[in-house]
């Protein structure tokens, strides 16, 4: 089984990797690029823990073949903070106690970021439906939704 060479841009950095056809983008991120912030919790696109932004689109990286990443721009949780400065969503999640075990947190932050980039003033309902593909078993979502709404308000002010 021959490996395929793929070039892509991950969090602004050019990367190259060799992958087998079966490998998903999530496999490559976690196992080859050491970006373990994206989590594998279902491998079927039902939980959102592996969410990344692929050429501007929010996707489950477990449902993307690694070979499809050729020439693409990929944003993962590891690229969300800019240097020492957390993304406002990351800061608000901490302030709001919007995480418990934290395993869903990277996926939810990435999904929320994708939402706020499209819709700076989402309603509670919009936030809830946008994040419906991101399961969280700990929080009951309340503090997550509040943190997203508060971040949106903060980002609109600044």
């Amino acid at each position: 089984m021959s490996k395929r060479h793929v070039s892509a841009v991950v969090n602004g950095d050019p990367v190259e990797f060799l992958c087998t056809p079966e490998q998903t983008l999530l496999d490559v991120l976690r196992d080859d690029l050491d970006l373990t912030g994206s989590k594998e919790c279902c491998s079927s696109g039902d939980c959102g823990a592996c969410s990344v932004i692929l050429d501007g689109r929010l996707v489950c990286s477990c449902l993307v073949l690694s070979a499809e990443a050729e020439g693409k721009r990929i944003e993962t949780i590891e690229g969300m903070a800019k240097g020492e400065e957390l993304h406002p969503l990351q800061r608000r999640f901490l302030e709001h106690a919007a995480l418990q075990c934290g395993i869903c947190t990277p996926g939810i932050l990435i999904a929320a970021k994708a939402l706020l980039e499209r819709e700076p003033d989402p309603s509670e309902t919009e936030v809830r439906f946008w994040l419906a593909g991101n399961l969280c078993r700990c929080t009951g979502y309340d503090k997550i939704v509040r943190a997203v709404l508060d971040t949106a308000a903060e980002m609109r002010r600044s």
Binding site: R30, T36, G37, I77, E78, M80, F93, L99, G102
Partner: peptide, 21 residues
């Protein structure tokens, strides 16, 4: 009080290492 949690930063940046990491 409601201060930030010590492990929080690593959990919002993807740095926290779970069982499969």
């Amino acid at each position: 009080t409601r201060g930030p949690r010590p492990d929080g930063l690593d959990k919002v940046t993807g740095r926290a290492r779970y069982g499969a990491d």
